[in-house]
């Protein structure tokens, strides 16, 4: 079967394996060692690693640069790109450069508003939006053309990802937004962190009913809670996040020292369910600043060994 990009993630998903991706936030400085250290925890545990792009609008080492470092470490990056910081010229040139260095997966995002970050005075670019970014990368790959219409020498063959938030309002529109991203050309979706399982089941059912899950690989987003405090923060302060009270109660029900363990236990239960849930092709584990816990989570969630394809 002919591959769109030939990335490991694409091969794993296409072969029908239940995919497992991780996440790594680049440092707020120039120390490549920090990236390598985080990468070491993830090696062999996941099929690809998302490298975030100035997440929460805070300046960090560029996503493509950190992606290259993890490539050198023998991991496969999923290069995240947001629309907030670059116009179409910069985006396309970064995609060419990233591909030239061996990057094969991309996640196309709008990006958190600059107001949240460490430079709230910055001008948000948003020259194109995430939907249009997906279309642009697809055009570069499949038609070998830049958005402006001219031909690309050796077009970048990228496996195209995007995000979906099944929980943000208006809920009824979310599945249609997914359909639009598929129409734009997305190959895989990584969802927002899932805590409200009922709502997620409903969203995935709608996606199944509309035939969308046959056209795109959906990776369910999982972030284990480290504490009651984190759960409350996520519930009250992170836009678009849906944290049910029952989950907070469950964490409150265990000894403080055991809350992180309970969080991992909940995450593993979720992963077990996702493995059986029709329409879910894998899990995207966002262990935020908890990369060293990934081997334990992978083990406990019975995600090891990772398939070699």
């Amino acid at each position: 079967m002919e591959m769109k990009s030939g990335s490991n993630l694409e091969k794993v998903l296409t072969a029908g394996h239940f995919a497992f991706t991780g996440e790594l936030g680049p440092p707020r400085g120039t120390d490549a060692g920090e990236v390598r250290k985080k990468a070491a925890h993830l090696k062999g545990m996941v099929d690809a690693v998302n490298i975030t792009d100035n997440q929460t609008a805070v300046v960090r080492m560029s996503s493509w640069a950190a992606s290259i470092i993890i490539l050198q470490e023998g991991l496969e990056p999923n290069y995240q790109m947001v629309c907030r910081d670059r116009n179409r010229l910069a985006m396309q040139s970064d995609i060419l450069g990233a591909y030239a260095h061996g990057i094969r997966n991309m996640l196309c995002l709008s990006g958190d508003h600059q107001k949240f970050g460490d430079h709230p005075q910055a001008k948000g670019v948003f020259d194109i939006d995430s939907m249009q970014l997906i279309g642009m990368v697809k055009c570069m790959r499949d038609e070998g053309k830049f958005l402006g219409g001219t031909e690309i020498g050796h077009p970048p063959k990228i496996f195209i990802g995007a995000a979906a938030n099944p929980f943000a309002d208006p809920f009824e529109w979310r599945v249609h937004r997914l359909a639009k991203k598929i129409k734009a050309g997305v190959d895989f979706i990584q969802t927002q962190c899932i805590y409200n399982m009922d709502k997620f089941r409903e969203w995935i059912k709608q996606s199944n009913d509309m035939g969308l899950t046959e056209k795109v690989f959906i990776l369910a987003g999982v972030t284990p809670m480290k504490s009651v405090g984190m759960a409350k923060y996520m519930k009250n302060n992170v836009p678009g996040m849906d944290v049910p009270d029952e989950l907070i109660k469950r964490l409150q029900g265990v000894d403080k020292k055991m809350q992180a363990d309970e969080g991992i236990k909940i995450a593993c239960e979720q992963i077990e369910e996702f493995k059986e849930l029709k329409g879910v092709a894998g899990v995207h584990l966002m262990a935020i600043e908890w990369e060293h816990k990934v081997p334990e989570i992978a083990e406990r969630a019975k995600m090891l060994p990772r398939p070699v394809v």
């Binding site: 709008s110 508003h113 938030n165």
Partner: peptide, 20 residues
């Protein structure tokens, strides 16, 4: 739209309000 999105809403919609 604070991000000027042509194909919204983004994932930051917060009970009908903007993430900002």
């Amino acid at each position: 739209c604070a991000k000027g999105l042509y194909n919204g809403p983004c994932g930051g919609t917060n009970k009908g309000n903007c993430e900002i």
